[in-house]
């Protein structure tokens, strides 16, 4: 029998990066101004992991992909109208608060409980995927804690590639300092892989895939139970956007080498 994988992807939703993101303090702590009404997307790092998961599942017949996502279910539904057309998966929605400021331990606990309760999940075949970072406000530890709670100790972060061997073992390429990769060998599942960008392009929308996914997504969204996340004493003193200055020039006649040289000069000057 081929390597049958059970891949669970943890992916949150974040405001579309083009939106104006302005921190505000509300009654429930910090958040982003008007976040609920801003268009949302699947966190791009986690989205990479979803596409890698689908690709891996496609190469290993009998495998299955679950997408576990915590967020307001109305918002999740909006995002699914695009994401569901990309690749085949089963959505496990958890109706929770929006925003990236809840305590990572509470979030991880809810996610781990939802994964543990998945019917038909074989935890010996489990690959737990997610984003290495979040496009907005990732604590950087949530996926690791989910893995720990599920008893998975083989964990890899900044993953760009996984190569599965016939005996179920696999090699993983992880990003390390200096723009290099570290190659790790793992005896087999279960494992946690926090993905960087991977190597796959974003799949094009395919409504046929979307319609197939929707048969399970809509009932799942309807049944999603509301969840609250405990603060666990977490308190934010202040929240701010990274200091940045965006200066845009439209240049049409520079070679890649010239562009690289200018970037290097600019970085050196900073």
């Amino acid at each position: 029998m081929a390597n049958v994988l059970h891949i669970v992807v943890c992916a949150g939703i974040v405001p579309d990066p083009l939106q104006t993101l302005e921190p505000v303090t509300g009654p429930n702590g910090p958040g982003l101004k008007n976040e609920m009404v801003l268009p949302a997307v699947l966190d791009p790092w986690a989205a990479s992991s979803l596409y890698e998961a689908a690709n891996l599942a496609g190469k290993n017949p009998g495998s299955k992909v679950w997408l576990v996502s915590l967020g307001p279910k109305a918002k999740l539904q909006q995002v699914m109208m695009t994401v569901a057309q990309k690749v085949a998966f089963e959505l496990v929605p958890i109706d929770g608060p929006i925003g990236g400021f809840p305590d990572a331990h509470s979030t991880a606990a809810v996610l781990a409980d939802a994964i543990a309760a998945l019917p038909g999940l074989d935890r010996n075949r489990l690959l737990l995927f997610g984003g290495w970072e979040s496009a907005t406000r990732g604590a950087g530890v949530t996926l690791q804690i989910v893995g720990e709670r599920l008893g998975i100790t083989d964990q890899f972060q900044g993953v760009d590639q996984i190569d599965l061997n016939e005996d179920g073992s696999f090699e993983v390429l992880e990003r390390i300092e200096g723009g290099r990769h570290q190659v790790s060998a793992c005896a087999g599942t279960p494992a946690v892989l926090g993905w960087a960008t991977g190597n796959l392009a974003e799949p094009r929308n395919n409504p046929q895939v979307g319609m197939a996914n929707m048969r399970t997504i809509m009932p799942a969204l309807q049944k999603a139970k509301p969840t609250t996340l405990a603060a666990n004493g977490l308190r934010y003193v202040s929240v701010s956007l990274p200091k940045q200055q965006r200066t845009t020039r439209v240049v049409k006649d520079m070679t890649p080498d010239q562009i690289a040289a200018e970037l290097a000069e600019w970085i050196g000057a900073e």
């Binding site: 921190p23 101004k33 009404v37 268009p39 909006q78 934010y236 202040s238 701010s240």
Partner: peptide, 20 residues
């Protein structure tokens, strides 16, 4: 940039989105 308190809003917050 520090955080600011969000006053009660009675005007349209953002451009009408898909849900609307």
């Amino acid at each position: 940039m520090g955080t600011v308190s969000l006053p009660e809003v009675k005007t349209m917050l953002a451009l009408p989105g898909d849900a609307v």
